[in-house]
Structures are given as structure tokens and as C-alpha cells.
Amino acid sequence: MRVSDLARQAATTTETVRHYTDIGLLKPQRDPGNGYRHYNQSDLRLLRFAIKARSLGFTLTDIQSLATASEEGETPCGQVRSLIEQRLEDVEARIRELQALSQRMRSAMSDWQDKPDCHLDDGRVCGLIDAVVGEDELETSR
């Protein structure tokens, strides 16, 4: 099948198929007559696997490593479990960071509710932000 056929069957874009081919994840056969790439059912299975793995937070490097292990007859499921545990820890840490950021933003919005817009003549950019993060706090964080 051609790039467009593979993309359609995997519910993805032709750009994704081409990118995965360019990085060596997909390895289509070339038609010697016209040079067109021809993909087979194995390519479709691997592409669908890659799309599912990406939806779980796996990187393309992870996916290539898992595919290589499978091609070599290994069962990469243990590696999948380890990787997803690590990714889950990273995601949960990022969620905590984003929740803290959200709280700081809500607090700032609340503090700014009754403050007027004003032009500062002392070189500062925005008094609203300066009121939230004072210069003394910035000095200690550097």
C-alpha cells in the first residue's frame, strides 16, 4: 500500500507516515520501477502500535527500542512497564507543578482585580507582576 493508504488505515496523516519512515521506524519496500514506497501489513501494525504508544507518553526513541527488541525476538513488556512507571512519575510531578502555577495565577488575578493599569516611569515593565514577585524574591531565586 502507498503512504496515503497506510495513513488512512492507521487514522493518521501522511506526514506522520513519512516522518516515521524518515527516522527508520517504518521500512517500506521501494518499487524499482518508480521508486515509490510500498508498505505492508507489518508496517500498518507497527504504525498503529506507535500511535498507541505515543498516546501513552512513549517517545519515538522508546518506540524504536521496543520495536527493535520485538524484531529480535525479545518480549519488551517488562521494558514497557518500567518506562510507563517512569513516565507516570514525570507526568504526576508536572501536574503538581501546573496545579501550583494555576494557584499562583488565580491568586494574582484575584489580587489584580481592583488594581488600575498604570505606566511606570521607573523602568519597570508592569507593576502588577512586580507586586506579585518582588525584586527581593527574584534575587534569592537566581
Rank of each mutant, 00 (worst) to 15 (best):
G78M: 07
S55N: 12
T75H: 06
I63R: 03
L56R: 11
L56P: 14
V80L: 14
E72Q: 12
G78W: 10
C77Q: 11
R54A: 05
L44K: 00
P76Q: 04
I63F: 01
T75D: 14
R54G: 10
L44E: 06
C77P: 01
C77S: 02
A53K: 02
A69E: 03
R54W: 04
V80C: 06
A69R: 07
G78A: 05
T68P: 12
R81N: 15
T59D: 10
D62A: 13
I51H: 03
L46N: 03
T75N: 13
R81L: 12
A53Y: 03
L60P: 05
L60I: 01
R48E: 05
L66A: 08
L44W: 00
D62E: 02
I51A: 13
Q79Y: 14
Q79T: 11
A53C: 12
L47H: 05
L44F: 00
T68L: 09
L66G: 03
A50H: 00
A67I: 00
T61C: 02
S70D: 12
L46H: 04
A69M: 09
D62H: 12
T68W: 14
G78C: 10
A67L: 01
V80F: 11
L56D: 07
E72K: 10
D43W: 01
S70F: 15
E74T: 11
A53T: 06
S42K: 07
L47C: 07
L46W: 00
R45H: 13
S42I: 04
T75Y: 03
S65L: 07
A67W: 08
K52A: 07
L46G: 01
A69Q: 06
K52T: 14
S65A: 05
F49L: 14
R48G: 01
E74W: 14
S55L: 13
G73D: 09
T61L: 06
D62Y: 06
L44I: 01
G78P: 13
L66Y: 12
F58M: 02
D62T: 01
E72W: 09
K52C: 12
R54T: 08
K52H: 09
F58K: 03
I51V: 15
T75G: 10
S65K: 12
G73H: 11
F58L: 14
I63N: 08
V80Y: 09
T61K: 08
E72L: 06
A67N: 08
G57L: 06
K52S: 01
T59A: 11
V80R: 03
D43T: 08
P76F: 07
L47S: 06
G73P: 02
T59E: 04
S55R: 13
Q64F: 03
S70V: 15
L47A: 03
Q64P: 04
R54V: 09
E71L: 14
K52F: 11
E74G: 14
F49W: 05
I63A: 08
G73N: 07
G73A: 05
D62R: 10
R54N: 05
L66M: 05
E74F: 11
L47M: 10
P76T: 07
L66E: 15
R54I: 12
K52Y: 10
G73Y: 08
V80S: 01
E74P: 13
